[in-house]
Simulated assay, not measured.
Amino acid sequence: MKRIAIDMDEVMADLHKKHLDLFNRDYNENLTTDDLIGTRLWKIRPHDADDILAYVDDPTFFRDLEVMEGSREVIKELNESFEIYITTAAMEHPSSFAAKYEWLKEHFPFLSDSQFVFCGNKSIIHADYLIDDSPRHFKNFRGEGILFSAPHNRYESGYVRVENWGKVRKYFLS
C-alpha cells in the first residue's frame, strides 16, 4: 500500500485566514489573501515581523483554525486506499503541539493517533508522497513532493501542484 504524508497548516487547516484576521484587527488594516500572493505576511510588514510571527507561538493559535474545504472528505477517502500520515512541523513552534493534536482529533476523528507525526525536518518521513504548501520540505524527501497551492507559493515551480482537495482526489483516486 502506498504511503501519503500530508502537511497540516495551510493544507488541512486554514492558517492564513486566522493570521490575517488577527493582524487586521490588531493593526487596523484590511489586507487580504491577494496581498499574500508570492510572499508571507511578515515579509510585507517587516517592521512588525516579530509581532506577526509571535501570533503562532500562542499555545491556542492552532486550536480553532478552519478546516480547508474538502480536506476531511478526501483524506477519509484516501485513508481507505493508502497509508495516511499527517506530518506537521510542530517542533518549529513547540507550544502548538497540544492545540494541533486536539484540532486533529476533533476534525479528523477517523484517523488514529499513530497516523500523526509531529516533527521538525520532514526529510525523515518515509512516504511515497508528501503533500505540503512549503517546497522547502521536499528537499531531501525521498518520495514525490506535491505542492498544495497557497498564496505564498504561487510562483513556485518544478513540482506537481494541486490547487485544492478536489484536485488531490483526482490525482490519487482517478
Rank of each mutant, 00 (worst) to 15 (best):
M1I: 13
R3N: 07
I4Y: 04
I4C: 02
A5K: 05
D7K: 02
M8W: 10
D9G: 01
E10M: 11
A13Q: 03
A13M: 03
H16N: 15
H19S: 09
H19A: 08
L20V: 05
L20R: 02
L22A: 00
L22H: 05
L22P: 06
L22N: 09
R25D: 09
R25K: 15
D26A: 03
D26F: 03
N30S: 12
L31W: 05
T32N: 07
T33D: 12
G38Q: 02
T39N: 04
T39Y: 10
K43I: 10
P46C: 09
P46L: 06
D48H: 15
D48L: 15
A49I: 01
D50Q: 13
D51S: 13
I52D: 10
I52Q: 04
L53A: 01
A54L: 11
V56E: 14
D57Q: 12
P59V: 06
P59A: 06
T60A: 11
T60L: 12
F61E: 04
F61H: 04
F61A: 07
F62S: 00
F62T: 02
L65E: 02
E69Y: 07
G70V: 03
G70E: 08
S71A: 15
I75L: 14
K76L: 10
E77V: 08
N79A: 12
S81P: 00
S81M: 10
F82G: 07
Y85P: 00
Y85F: 15
I86S: 04
T87L: 03
M91L: 13
E92P: 00
E92W: 15
H93R: 14
H93T: 15
S96I: 10
F97M: 14
A98V: 15
A98C: 11
A98I: 14
K100E: 02
E102M: 13
K105L: 05
E106Y: 13
P109Y: 05
L111S: 08
L111D: 05
F116D: 01
F116M: 10
N121F: 03
K122N: 05
S123T: 03
I124K: 11
H126L: 12
H126N: 14
A127G: 09
Y129T: 03
I131L: 15
D132A: 02
D132K: 03
D132M: 02
D133C: 07
S134M: 13
R136P: 00
R136S: 13
F138R: 04
N140K: 13
R142S: 13
E144M: 08
I146C: 03
I146E: 07
S149D: 14
A150H: 05
P151E: 01
H152L: 01
N153G: 03
N153T: 09
E156K: 10
S157P: 06
S157R: 14
G158V: 10
G158S: 07
V160T: 15
W165E: 08
K167P: 02
K167R: 14
K167A: 12
R169C: 11
Y171T: 07
F172R: 02
L173M: 12
L173Y: 09
